[in-house]
Design a protein around this nucleic acid. Structure first.
Lengths: 205, 205
DNA sequence: GTCTATATTTGGATAGAC
DNA sequence: GTCTATCCAAATATAGAC
């Protein structure tokens, strides 16, 4: 919105995100990225050093924001005395939804994130656990306060299950064919409601 | 156990499965596969025609067996009158566990399957939904009978959530670092118990 | 910062001998 | 069925002009 659409750097990041979501990190080539962004092939190396550098920047751009929003939503809850399980789950899940609904292909990133889980690449996992693990632990503390009868190990198990369910649902990786009339955004919006109800029941079990 | 270890074909499939699990379909090269299986590079094209053919055979080998076992477990239940939700979930989840515990790297396949979800490749998705979708629908029928108050759409939502959680948990993609003392197999065994309890609660909600 | 041109590597696939 | 040798396309990366 500042001047003429987006900078070269921004366009590369946007196209890379979309292509990584579609074809994976190894499956998307820099040639596809630069062609899609209508920039020169050499631009990637100039701006990000290497393909690895580009991948990390795709993550950093979104994760920083996502984590900030989740923690902010959690902090807003902590001030209140009538916290519900559903409210905490909402604080965790809704920011991911909001991001996925953003213009300029925000929906692609949740898929990139789901792909990242599948990558057992040590480098990427460490990078993610440093960003993402911290937030999960913050939430765990609040969950433990709300579920005093729940064993700590047990909670971690269930949070892991929830994290997996959230990731897959938001990425829309389901096997069961959805009615084609439903848009991706509508799918995600509905998914949030279902996920919260489902997860709350699972945690209370 | 028949003669001298495994045939060329079998060794290729085993190594390919492991490498696809680790690096993805695009990320694992045929050169890595053939080197790992200690066979000649040309052997892949001879036995499977192409890399795509190899990928499909890796799926077919396991999915045929997995689906047969799931349906058998479901059929065994159908004869009885006292079916519980937990028993049906067990019939769905346990065969996946059993397969993942098999010798010769059975654990790799659940990861390959998890990767497949992430691939939005149309060809692969169609192939999977033809194998996997049918089983899910069979189970859905039984679930609907056990949960008469549950809307059909609502059930599909929850089954999708469960399928995602199962895949994710069995593939051990969790972010929260597990105690390193726990082996992968032990992790999966525990995961099944937790998943069943969690999913049953979610379905009853 | 962006381009062209190119170096270098790697990957999938095949031809043809054995 | 298995091997060697090779072809060809595609990919990452860089050098150097503008």
């Amino acid at each position: 919105m500042s001047q003429a659409s987006f900078s070269t750097r921004e366009r590369i990041l946007g196209v890379a995100e979309a292509l990584f979501a579609r074809h994976g990190f190894a499956g998307a080539s820099l040639r596809q990225v630069t062609a899609g962004a209508k920039v020169n092939l050499a631009a990637v190396n100039y701006h990000f050093g290497s393909k690895e550098g580009l991948i990390e920047e795709v993550f950093r751009r979104r994760l920083d924001e996502l984590n900030r929003e989740r923690l902010a939503a959690l902090a807003a809850l902590a001030a209140r005395s009538d916290i519900t399980l559903e409210a905490v789950l909402d604080a965790f899940i809704r920011p991911a939804l909001q991001q996925s609904l953003q213009a300029h292909g925000g929906g692609a990133f949740v898929r990139v994130l789901a792909r990242a889980y599948a990558e057992h690449d040590e480098r990427l996992r460490r990078f993610l656990s440093e960003n993402y693990g911290h937030v999960l632990r913050e939430f765990a503390i609040v969950f433990l306060r709300l579920l005093p009868n729940l064993d700590k190990d047990e909670l971690y198990w269930r949070l892991d299950i929830i994290a997996g369910a959230v990731t897959y649902a938001m990425a829309d990786f389901g096997i069961i064919k959805r009615r084609s009339a439903i848009s991706e955004d509508a799918h995600r919006r509905q998914a949030v409601t279902h996920l919260i109800a489902f997860a709350a029941a699972g945690l209370r079990a």
